[in-house]
């Protein structure tokens, strides 16, 4: 039983480490081009860099998109306070937040053993 528990913990720790390295480090190498869905909604537009930021010129579905109501949040757009250089840290925060919410929910939902 102790061996099994140790083995379990070792595996879970390794799994968490991989997630943290992916979100905290490997994510810097992610392709920053629009994803498939964004690409489709941007069809017909060109993205122009203006002083006010990016502007969509032409006619495309993405022009219907509204600003996110939480776009001023501390980790908005996977930054830390707007700093894109800290996106890895934002990723680490995301991994921990997701783990906390998911584990919390699953722990509450789980079947309790009737004996033991």
């Amino acid at each position: 039983m102790t061996t099994t528990t140790k083995r379990n913990l070792g595996f879970l720790a390794a799994f968490l480490l991989v997630a943290l390295v992916l979100a905290g480090g490997v994510s810097y190498f992610a392709d920053s081009n629009p994803d498939g869905l964004d690409h489709a909604t941007l069809q017909g537009c060109t993205v122009a860099e203006t002083e006010a930021g990016e502007e969509l010129q032409g006619s495309c579905i993405a022009q219907n998109a509204q600003d996110h109501p939480l776009s001023e949040g501390p980790f908005a757009d996977y930054t830390v306070g707007g700093d894109e250089g800290l996106s890895g840290l934002a990723g680490v925060v995301g991994v921990i937040a997701t783990l906390a919410v998911a584990f919390g929910l699953f722990w509450v939902l789980r079947k309790r053993p009737s004996k033991n």
Partner: peptide
Amino acid sequence: PMAGLVAAFVFA
């Protein structure tokens, strides 16, 4: 715990 980690891994 495994399920919680899978969610975290999907996020990453």
